[in-house]
């Protein structure tokens, strides 16, 4: 436990030592604030549905920037050798990086709670979709971070890690467009892999156990692959 907490603290510190975290958070807040204000003024409706979709797209774009360095940098700088030769499990190393990245991303997403506060101040929003939207963002972030970490664990080059993660996310995001082109039973399976199709219900206020399970499964798969990536040496 001592070792795990030390790892998490170190990862958090490493995230905030680099300017990437600040840049990502700042851009995220500016874009979302702008989107929130524009939709609010245009529609005059007390919902955050638009904010959730925007935030989801931005997570797809920004998570690779957060995860790319995690293992790639340690591998290239040789510090991975220090970590892996310490009496800690590979799983702990991966989980610590996951926990720290999620901590940063959730803090960033939590800053948008200001918008709900604004809505609550001036009207009575429907809280259901707001809760489910935040849950959806959390689940999406978990899936993206774990895939990003798995990709980072396989390479020593940050840029390669970022580009590959972005490619994977992009495919999983837009895959529903291709699914339509496929023959009958397969198209539904492929559609089931679409991050957008899985996220949409959460943003709109509907929670399905299958979507929940999907994100959880992807997260676990990503973490598993990251551990395997570290173990392969």
């Amino acid at each position: 436990m001592t070792a795990f907490l030390a790892l998490v603290a170190k990862e958090l510190r490493a995230l905030f030592v680099s300017p990437i975290a600040y840049a990502v958070i700042a851009v995220f807040l500016v874009l979302n604030g702008y989107g929130f204000a524009v939709t609010l003024i245009a529609t005059k409706q007390a919902t955050l549905v638009n904010v959730f979709f925007q935030a989801a797209v931005q997570l797809v774009l920004f998570v690779p920037l957060v995860t790319m360095r995690q293992f790639a940098e340690e591998r290239r700088g040789g510090t991975l050798e220090l970590l892996l030769t310490s009496p800690v499990r590979e799983g702990d190393i991966v989980l610590a990086k996951f926990a720290a990245s999620m901590g940063m991303l959730l803090a960033m997403v939590a800053l948008t709670l200001v918008y709900s506060a604004i809505l609550a101040r001036f009207s009575t929003p429907d809280w259901g979709p707001i809760y489910s939207g935040y849950l959806g963002l959390t689940l999406l972030a978990g899936a993206l971070v774990s895939i990003g970490l798995a990709v980072s664990a396989l390479t020593a080059n940050q840029v390669v890690a970022a580009v590959v993660s972005l490619g994977v996310f992009g495919m999983l995001w837009a895959i529903d467009a291709w699914a339509a082109l496929l023959p009958s039973p397969i198209d539904n399976w492929v559609l089931g892999l679409s991050l957008l199709a899985r996220f949409q219900p959460f943003a709109l206020g509907a929670m399905y156990a299958s979507d929940f399970g999907f994100f959880l499964a992807v997260t676990l798969l990503g973490l598993f692959l990251a551990v395997r990536g570290l173990a392969r040496r």
Partner: peptide, 21 residues
């Protein structure tokens, strides 16, 4: 290989905790 952004004491502290101290 070392963590370049850490201070010396901080690094030793971190490595000690990794070793369960």
């Amino acid at each position: 290989p070392l963590y370049g952004h850490m201070r010396v004491d901080e690094f030793l502290h971190f490595m000690g905790r990794l070793r369960g101290l």
